[in-house]
Design a protein around this nucleic acid. Structure first.
Length: 488
DNA sequence: TATTGTGCATAAGTTCAGCT
DNA sequence: AGCTGAACTTATGCACAATA
């Protein structure tokens, strides 16, 4: 019964083009804006899932970030799965050997630069645009700001007809310090870290301001390439990049086998402290492109590459209080209020404790000294209690008693770990419905009867928009339901 | 104030390979 | 064919700092 993804994509594209023309040229739309948006969203979802069937960018502006054109990636731009210890990493190696049949695998190990991933497109050897990762299939066109980076060669001799070079834009630590010294002199608040500043600069709309902040780039990866046979291995590709004048790390050797790769990772953990840019790990990739192709990818990650995250710095601090946050869905999340402590580049004052069971399992009490670390780069994580420093008067934390004190009428949802508000207010109910509907489906026909009925009721009532966390897109959806209920 | 991009934890749901 | 555990996917929630 179901049409193939490819046919669906073709049908959607034809429909979108027709409706767009009706709207733009004849000013006689046959469908509502809301329905049109749904078509565009459905197409975007499909093309992300099946990039091999994706057609050219239709140039339909959606409601993502304004101020930037968007552009399609010819080959999907994936992110990397993470590994955190030797066992994780060896499991990655084992999977590969299994998938590829136990032949001698070659790896490339390089530092994971902490910046913004970007894809540089060259057509017939000419630099034409730079695009952020976005959703992997389509990102923001940031050519204007990226063009300010002088290190990028503008034309390549003997390049394939089409070439996407993947790289990471970052800010050197010295440049970061220079800018912050300036800020300090002018009495302005300091930038927090080089990664966010680099990300901010790439997306800056003000070219004058962007010009004042020097960004760098390091190139490491191959996206789309036509003809596809231009390179046999990453090492070969990088050698060519260097000949063309791209900034690359040229101290990278090919490692034979998992053991050699693991050694290279450990060496990097030492070396990284002296590198002129921020790093948070290593990237390990299979060298031969044929092996990469055979290993394949999931929708999110390639099977032929992983990131290895170096163990984070840890710190101890005092947990003063456990407070409760109520989320959009009425879920209650306990949060640790900590004595602020400097950790891996930023000050940590709060950390999520996830749920009541987590607190009980770790027996976390108010007044305890806790050991914290940054999970990955940003999120603070409470590892556990330093028992020797527990004050004599500390009592086990009573989750339910605290809820009562705060006047929160909450209960466990069956066997689930999380507590939820028991009697959600009308506003909460609306939010939950709207959120559910906008996430789950594009059309009211796809909803269960009960939910659809409630939504139509809601759409007919005047909903106080300001009071709710309703986004413009969700609001348009509600408006659409209003039309729908008039029809039927 | 809202949105975006970075990324981790948890849980639930789904798919797949290997076995009986 | 059916079962089972592992792997993978999806959804939700959270933190933080940047720009608009």
């Amino acid at each position: 019964m179901s049409e193939s993804p490819r046919d669906q994509i073709l049908r959607l594209r034809a429909a979108i083009q027709r409706h767009e023309e009706l709207y733009r040229k004849k000013h006689a739309p046959e469908i509502s804006d809301f329905e049109f948006d749904k078509l565009v969203d459905a197409l975007a979802d499909l093309e992300r899932e099946f990039p091999m069937f994706a057609g050219p960018d239709l140039g339909i502006g959606d409601d993502k970030s304004e101020g930037f054109q968007q552009a399609d990636h010819k080959a999907p731009m994936l992110s990397l799965d993470n590994t955190y210890d030797e066992a994780d990493f060896r499991a990655f190696g084992d999977r590969l050997y299994k998938a590829l049949g136990g032949t001698g695998l070659e790896f490339i190990v390089e530092p994971k630069v902490d910046g913004v991933a970007v894809s540089l497109t060259f057509e017939k050897g000419q630099f034409v645009r730079a695009v952020t990762r976005g959703n992997g299939a389509r990102g923001d066109d940031v050519t204007a700001n990226v063009s300010l980076i002088r290190e990028i060669p503008r034309s390549l001799k003997g390049a394939p007809d089409l070439l996407e070079v993947r790289g990471e834009i970052y800010m050197e630590l010295a440049e970061f310090q220079r800018l912050n010294t300036e800020r300090e002199a002018e009495g302005e608040p300091l930038y927090a870290n080089p990664r966010n500043l680099a990300a901010g600069t790439v997306k800056l709309l003000d070219g004058e301001e962007a010009r004042k902040r020097r960004l760098s780039i390091v190139c490491y990866g191959l996206g789309a390439c036509e003809p596809a046979t231009a390179f046999a291995s990453l090492k070969e590709f990088k050698t060519k990049l260097k000949a063309w004048g791209f900034p690359i790390r040229d101290d990278i050797d090919v490692q034979q086998g998992v053991d050699a790769a693991w050694k290279a990772i450990q060496q990097l953990d030492v070396l990284r402290r002296d590198l002129p840019f921020p790093t948070d790990g290593a990237v390990v990739k299979v060298n031969r492109l044929e092996d990469q192709r055979r290993a394949g990818t999931t929708s999110k990650f390639p099977h032929w590459a992983v990131a290895f995250k170096f163990p984070p710095d840890q710190a101890e601090t005092i947990l003063r209080k456990i407070s409760m946050q109520v989320g959009r869905t009425g879920a209650i999340t306990p949060v640790a209020e900590l004595d602020p402590v400097l950790l891996a580049g930023s000050t940590v004052a709060r950390a999520t404790l996830h749920n009541a069971d987590e607190i009980a399992r770790k027996d976390i009490r108010e007044g305890d000294t806790v050991r914290i670390q940054k999970a990955g780069e940003i999120i603070p994580q409470v590892l556990g209690v330093v028992l020797e420093k527990r004050p004599a008067e500390a009592r086990p934390f009573d989750f339910e008693a605290r809820l009562k004190e705060l006047g929160l009428d909450a209960a466990r949802d069956g066997e689930e770990a999380a507590y939820k508000l028991r009697a959600p207010s009308r506003e909460m109910k609306i939010r939950r419905l709207v959120h559910f509907a906008s996430k789950q489906c594009l059309d009211i026909d796809g909803l269960g009867d009960a939910v659809a009925e409630q939504l139509v009721d809601l759409a007919l009532v005047d909903v106080p928009v300001d009071a709710l966390g309703i986004t413009p897109a969700q609001w348009r959806m509600l408006e659409g339901f209003k039309d729908k209920s008039v029809d039927t």
